[in-house]
């Protein structure tokens, strides 16, 4: 277990590359300690909680950011499939560490395996001309089977650390893993910021996007690769089994109450952050698994959003009126 959570003790090439992020983590930790002093919040007194909160905040941004595109393409389940292959990646990392006596973060091997699986899912869908749930189910179970098999081969020592990957764990977010997450976060946010126009067009109207000259194939690949990165990043706290919920639930909530796409992106991030912050707090004081609590909070927020959406509709200010009620009524629009 200690080997898994070990920080940047041995300075390898990876640690050198992550150096600026460790520096940022130090600053962040100081800031959090100050907040803890100012507010008297017990949970912010520990360095592991500083990292957990940072990772949580990043998840709150990147998961709904990518989730928005996935949900509106009816690809919500891809996150789940990739999470299970990421688990295989973790198992590969643990296995290699044990056999070759290395101390590579299993999240790095998870990144590699999840990215390869993402590409595989995409290639299968290109070849069969559809995202089909059968191939997705096969990839999902293959990932999970590979993971459990590798782990059971090395039973004993390895099996001990598996729960943290399956269910996530606030206390095992090491400095190294937090730094890896910051890198993933940077890549994800930058890529979406650059390709936002294209991702939106492909998501909303794939054929028109293709006609306009966009390579739908390439943007689909980018989308699944980003999903793989989000899943690996979010897994530390959310766990393999619940990570996909963060891609879907806040987005579903935002869809209920938002009028525009831009608004729905912002609202989904706000809802996700709310779920993460409340979830971490409740999990800490209630001594529960953070992933589970965060998802429960997110679902509660979703239910509230459905209620608010209904209310908006009833008051006539609404995002999803029945089509016929305003059909071709030009007069009404001016009063809006």
């Amino acid at each position: 277990m200690n080997a898994l959570v070990g920080g940047p003790l041995q300075a390898g090439p990876i640690d050198t590359a992550l150096a600026p992020f460790y520096w940022f983590l130090t600053l962040w930790s100081q800031a959090m300690s100050w907040v803890a002093g100012a507010t008297g919040l017990e949970l912010l007194q520990y360095p592991f909680m500083h990292r957990a909160v940072l990772v949580g905040l990043c998840i709150g941004v990147m998961a709904p950011l990518i989730g928005t595109f996935l949900v509106h393409r009816q690809l919500a389940l891809i996150g789940d499939a990739l999470a299970h292959t990421a688990f295989a990646g973790v198992a590969v990392g643990l296995f290699l560490n044990a056999v070759l006596e290395l101390s590579v973060s299993p999240y790095l091997t998870a990144v590699v395996v999840a990215m390869l699986s993402a590409l595989l899912i995409e290639l299968i869908s290109e070849a069969t001309d559809a995202y089909n749930d059968v191939s997705m189910a096969i990839v999902l179970s293959t990932g999970f089977a590979l993971g459990t098999t590798l782990i059971s081969i090395n039973a004993g020592g390895l099996a001990v650390g598996v729960n943290q990957f399956l269910f996530g764990n606030l206390s095992t977010v090491s400095a190294e893993n937090a730094a890896i997450l910051l890198v993933l976060f940077g890549v994800i946010v930058t890529t979406v910021a650059v390709t936002r126009n294209q991702l939106l067009y492909v998501t909303f109207d794939e054929t028109a996007a293709a006609v306009s000259g966009l390579s739908v194939t390439w943007y689909n690949r980018i989308m699944v690769m980003l999903t793989a990165l989000v899943v690996v990043g979010a897994m530390q706290i959310m766990g393999v089994i619940l990570v996909a919920a963060m891609l879907v639930v806040p987005v579903a909530g935002a869809t209920q109450v938002s009028r525009s796409f831009t608004e729905s992106l912002l609202v989904s991030v706000v809802l996700a952050e709310l779920a993460v912050i409340l979830g971490i707090g409740v999990a800490y004081y209630g001594e529960a698994t953070a992933g589970g609590v965060i998802v429960l909070v997110a679902v509660a927020i979703y239910v509230a959003a459905v209620g608010i959406g209904r209310l908006q509709r009833r008051l006539g200010d609404d995002p999803a009126l029945e089509l016929d009620t305003i059909a071709a009524d030009d007069g009404e629009a001016t009063s809006d």
Partner: peptide, 15 residues
């Protein structure tokens, strides 16, 4: 123009 800020799902088929 009058419908510019309406959500698309709110429109009639023709609109």
């Amino acid at each position: 123009t009058a419908f510019a800020d309406r959500r698309v799902t709110q429109l009639s088929g023709g609109q």
